[in-house]
């Protein structure tokens, strides 16, 4: 079974069909996706600004990480819950969309980077300021790439 056939099969799943058949379902789910991303943007920026030495700099990096983490996880949950249905409604279009593949590539880096490296390192007291700045810069760069490429799927 080729990748295209997989995408073709995914596009025929009932969720995707229901979204395609509805006039308003796609825009509503899409708006939810955007709101989820705003929540993620807030959680990411508040910690990244702190890592860069801005924002809540009277507080420890570890504290800001603990305070933003639940919102980050909630936002990722909303984004998956809305993003997968959006994808299923136009899987074939995504297959041919460069922006989609750029987004998936960036997301494939952003998630492990955030949850395996950034947030864990943010809990370590031995984290050096220079390394914290690298973490913050890389995080902003990779998430803005996800957002920009995601928006770009809609232009093709």
């Amino acid at each position: 079974m080729s990748l295209f056939e997989v995408f073709d099969w995914l596009e025929q799943l009932p969720i995707g069909v229901a979204i395609r058949d509805s006039l308003w379902l796609f825009p509503v789910v899409e708006a939810g996706h955007l709101l989820g991303f705003v929540m993620l943007g807030g959680a990411v920026f508040v910690l990244d600004l702190r890592l860069l030495g801005f924002g809540l700099r009277e507080r420890s990096i570890a504290y800001v990480e603990r305070q933003t983490r639940p919102w980050l996880i909630a936002a990722v949950g909303v984004l998956f819950a809305t993003g997968i249905p959006l994808f299923l409604s136009e899987a074939i279009k995504c297959y041919y969309s460069t922006a989609f593949w750029v987004k998936m590539g960036a997301l494939g880096m952003a998630l492990p980077f955030t949850f395996v490296f950034r947030n864990r390192l943010a809990q370590q007291e031995s984290l050096r300021p220079a390394n914290a700045r690298w973490l913050g810069t890389a995080s902003i760069a990779v998430w803005l790439t996800v957002a920009a490429a995601g928006r770009w799927i809609g232009f093709s």
């Binding site: 705003v38 929540m39 993620l40 807030g42 920026f45 957002a147």
Partner: peptide, 26 residues
């Protein structure tokens, strides 16, 4: 859209603080 993430994302955390849902020690 990208600057919206910065704008409303940060406003969201101020609003959440006002609601008492995050950063309670600050």
């Amino acid at each position: 859209v990208l600057s919206l993430l910065l704008f409303v994302g940060t406003v969201l955390f101020v609003d959440l603080r006002l609601l008492g849902w995050t950063l309670r020690d600050v």
